[in-house]
């Protein structure tokens, strides 16, 4: 960059113009317009399938695969078909039980470990932690066969326990809590010790309340993962009365000629809980994801 002094000056003034709100040069305007166009297309493509899902839930299957793009009058028929074919109460109970109990257990066990790794450092435990991070790259496909054999030998196939137990100690969440614990003020722990609190009391009565926004973000991540989990539940939940909503939607879609109106109605129901949580806790969610990467 030696011979650019002239254009540099020109650019600098145009940049100053943009910032001061004065009319900019045409090139900058075109670039701006392109950015808006790109983002608008991206936003449209991202949101359209949601719109399509809701529209689809109000239409007949035949109209959906013919591409009818407008609200229909079949919502109640689709709902009726769904509720007669699927024991919805049971299915949602299965999903909710697995997601809620799984999330609660994961939060406690993984945050205990994250806190333990950060607060009580020793050479052995540091090595162990490095080993755990290495294990993060092991794909689930490598575990599922032995896991299935283990659970069938323990006669636990087709139980909630089999779905929940392997997900409870999550390396990713342990790592997440360890990173977050670095921001936990150690004076609080010292003060609590002077007050005579035991280590477990410090964890439950000082650490947990102070770190509640970390817990909130982790809750969303874990809840979504549990609610949407597919492959492992598909393997271990074998009878209809134990299946989750995710498995049911998949079964409805895989039918030889799927009833799309009813299936998209089921999809709306399956997506609603995570969508609501997302909009309620959007800020926390993004913060949580950001926290996980730092």
């Amino acid at each position: 960059m030696t011979d650019t002094s002239l254009p540099a000056a020109a650019n600098a003034t145009s940049a100053a113009k943009i910032r001061s709100g004065a009319p900019a040069n045409p090139l900058a305007l075109i670039r701006r317009a392109l950015v808006y166009l790109l983002l608008s297309i991206a936003a449209f493509v991202s949101v359209f399938p949601f719109f399509w899902m809701i529209v689809g839930a109000t239409n007949k299957s035949a109209d959906i695969i013919r591409g009818k793009n407008g609200f229909g009058t079949e919502l109640f028929n689709n709902a009726a078909t769904f509720f007669t074919q699927v024991d919805a109460l049971r299915v949602f109970w299965n999903s909710a039980f697995i997601a809620v109990v799984g999330t609660a257990l994961t939060l406690v066990i993984s945050s205990l470990a994250g806190y333990g790794f950060e607060m009580f450092r020793s050479r052995v435990r540091e090595r162990l932690f490095a080993l755990l991070l290495l294990l993060l790259s092991i794909p689930f496909a490598a575990l599922m066969v032995p896991l299935f054999v283990m659970f069938s030998q323990a006669k636990l196939v087709n139980t909630y326990t089999a779905v929940i137990l392997p997900t409870v100690a999550s390396i990713f969440i342990i790592f997440y809590f360890r990173q977050a614990t670095k921001a936990f003020p150690s004076e609080l722990r010292d003060a609590a010790k002077i007050d005579g609190l035991k280590e477990w009391q410090i964890f439950f009565f000082v650490y947990m309340p102070v770190m509640r926004s970390t817990y909130a973000a982790a809750t969303i991540i874990i809840f979504m993962a549990n609610w949407n989990n597919y492959l492992w539940p598909l393997i271990v939940l074998q009878t209809a009365e134990n299946k989750t909503i995710t498995l049911i939607v998949s079964a409805l879609t895989s039918a030889y000629t799927p009833d799309y109106g009813m299936t998209l109605f089921a999809t709306v129901l399956a997506t609603l809980p995570t969508l609501i949580i997302f909009f309620l806790l959007q800020r926390r969610f993004v913060e949580g994801m950001l926290g996980a990467v730092k």
Partner: peptide, 13 residues
Amino acid sequence: VTSLIAYSTIFKS
């Protein structure tokens, strides 16, 4: 926020 199953159903239709 969608599950892999939910969105593949939408895409299939």
